[in-house]
């Protein structure tokens, strides 16, 4: 299973973290620091796997972002790369040619998408289409909820 998932920019900034195991805040910070420096230091042609403590780091760079997943020793590294790719493709379709800025400004949406792909570090859905369909349905629901909230709000609307 995936223990955690990180999105790290090439400058070493964290863009998204998702923890599927329990770590204390301190451990999280240290892990992110350690992994960021390890992954960023690797040359382009090297393989996408790094052994880290008793786990394995599988990472892949897409444009300016590193997608990093930490898996158990006996997990399949190659299929993990595919899972990362699946996430990237869904992001790409959802945002339409996704870039780092999309993820910075819509980090919550990236999390929503992630939650449709993985639960507890296990894969939930293998079809991009299905994930995208669900996401757009949920967005519709969000719009409705927003209107509802706006109508329910009597005071002068400061929202838009």
């Amino acid at each position: 299973m995936i223990n955690f998932l990180l999105l790290i920019s090439r400058q070493g900034k964290t863009r998204l973290t998702k923890w599927y195991q329990t770590y204390s805040a301190k451990e999280k910070a240290r892990t992110v620091r350690e992994i960021t420096s390890t992954v960023l230091a690797r040359a382009l042609k090297m393989c996408n796997f790094v052994e880290w403590r008793d786990k394995k780091i599988v990472y892949k760079r897409y444009a300016s972002l590193f997608f990093v997943a930490c898996i158990d020793q006996d997990d399949n590294e190659l299929i993990t790369l595919e899972k990362i790719h699946l996430f990237v493709e869904v992001l790409d379709r959802y945002f339409g040619n996704v870039c780092e800025l999309d993820i910075i400004f819509n980090f919550h949406k990236a999390y929503y998408i992630l939650d449709e792909l993985f639960i507890g570090g296990e894969l939930q859905e293998s079809s991009k289409k299905e994930v995208l369909r669900v996401c757009s349905q949920m967005d519709d629901l969000m719009e409705e909820a927003k209107e509802e909230a706006a109508n329910g709000n009597q005071g002068p609307s400061r929202r838009r």
């Binding site: 919550h108 999390y111 929503y112 409705e144 927003k146 909230a149």
Partner: peptide, 20 residues
């Protein structure tokens, strides 16, 4: 009851809290 609130609430829960 609002879905928008709920959604951000659950997201916050998983990000800000651990099972401890």
């Amino acid at each position: 009851p609002n879905y928008m609130d709920k959604r951000i609430g659950y997201l916050g829960l998983t990000l800000l809290l651990t099972d401890q």
